[in-house]
Write a protein that binds this DNA or RNA. Sequence first.
RNA 1: CGGGGCGUGGCUCAGCCUGGUAGAGCACCUGGUUCGGGACCAGGGGGUCGGAGGUUCAAAUCCUCUCGCCCCGACCA
Length: 561
Amino acid sequence: MRFTKSLLPTLREDPADAEAVSHRLMLRAGLVRQLAAGVFVWLPFGQRVLDKVNTIIRDEMNGIGGQEITMPVVHPAEIWQKSGRWDGIPEMFKLRDRHGRDLCLGMTHEEVVAWLAAREIRSYRDLPQIWYQIQTKERDEARPRSGVLRTREFLMKDSYTLDPDEASLDRSYAAHEAAYRRIFERCGLRFHVVQSDTGMMGGHSAHEFMAPSAAGEDEVAMCAQCGYAANVELARSVPPAPEFPSSRREEVATPGARTIAEVAALLKIDPRLTIKSLLYVAPTAGPVLVLVRGDHSLHERKLMRAVGEECRAAHPDEVREHLGAPVGSVGPLGTRVPVVADETLREGTYVVGANREGFHVRGVVPGRDFECRFADLHTAVAGEACVQCGGALAVERVIEIGNIFKLGTKFAEALGATYLDEAGKERPIVMGSYGIGPARIAAAAIEQGADRDGIVWPPAIAPFDVHVVLVGSRDTQQAKAAEEIYAACRRSGLDALLDDRDERPGVKFKDADLLGVPVRVTVGNALAKEGVVEVRSRRTRAETKVPPDAVVEAARRCLAS
RNA sequence: CGGGGCGUGGCUCAGCCUGGUAGAGCACCUGGUUCGGGACCAGGGGGUCGGAGGUUCAAAUCCUCUCGCCCCGACCA
């Protein structure tokens, strides 16, 4: 690709609307342009990165027996009504055709796969199957953000496995996990595989592939000692217990103290000796009083799992109505509201709100002084102990780049996807679904590799292998050498970009750093003086001088190092 | 959905508080000088100040409504 003939609009300044490193650099390096909130145009440079990523994905998916198909973006309402997902998903784009029929834009393709399986799979002899596609997904996200990391329209590699039984599903699932590990390794990413929430829809087992980055939206807890790793949405942890002073149960005045910090300061005690009482409201179960230790924060997702339905925090007037006290003074004593307490509170004696404004009660033992049910509710924080081995947990911010999920028979049953087993008995197909976000791979690679001067691509997904900088575009000797090097690279299978613009050298070097192509070849003064050009690694900045006819070999060495 | 911020040439922004001829830098076009880390000089083109309504002799500036975008949180099958 020649710079002068390309749509490669690099930006000198940081775009005002971009915060995340990857977002900023993808705009500055001319990979993408934003059309609307969460809707992007991929320019040639960005497209090349997606193409490289997708080539790796296809290679590994085909390697485990995956068959590529393409499913529609427009879906009839009917299949979503059958699976029970037509209503209640605010992210679904819905539309109506000229005949008044309801349609939606596909946000995922379990329904279509189950529909297809229902018509085409008949016998256990047809199983197992792996079907995959790389297709655009549409989701009306509440808040698109961080450039390409969370968008309303995005490319996704989604695959679906069809198996006769759970044991076979386990094998398909394991094959996907292995393929995913190879894909992300080949893409040059650092990543973790963690246990993930199976969501409100149930499901059996799920893992997420997480690339560490400050721009990520998720957090994972990990134990370096035993390898336990989980999304904080479900990560369990054992916090170090404080020293519990022996205190009789008694009411104490805490005038004006509304927060845990204020109560602890007033009573001159460790916040870990207090209990935080939060009132939540569940649609069918009604009000629930939720308890976590004073220094902990509740993870609402864990609460939802414990209660079995979606909950919301109560309004202040609801708190007064159910507990007879304002928000800062509520507690579990003598209340008719059901109480669910974090497991940490099984042990110890605590200070709780007295349900009387301006008063707390000390010496309170959960389970003895009030009835409650225990569940894992608190958000794991770094330094707490691993539930498996007692090692110290680390907590890291991550970008979700892939997930794998055992679905079971839910969709097959809803859409009538069954097969006849060896005994001639009709049974539902057991499904799994597996996703990868190619754009997120690109963004994560930028997040993880970029330096002060711009992008540093992992060679495997770089838009080009070699960036030839022609310093003196009007110097015929240099121009001729640059053209020859450009042609030689292409002949030998290296993707090359030739900066043939009539620009000052500084501009070209700055752009080369910004664009992040792994190998830069500088054709400049040294050619006339010493008969050499410079071959330089973007990542290490190490430079070697070689004669023009040795560039391809030097570039390959540089790419491999 | 709750909270905050911002909309002024292609880009980054000033001007708004205190109403009175729309500005700067970069980019672009022409000519000249320059040429190994985002050059310089001279000349030039380009803006319904997001939109609508209102106040006023007069609105980028004040008021009301509206649309769009960004950030934090909630949500994320």
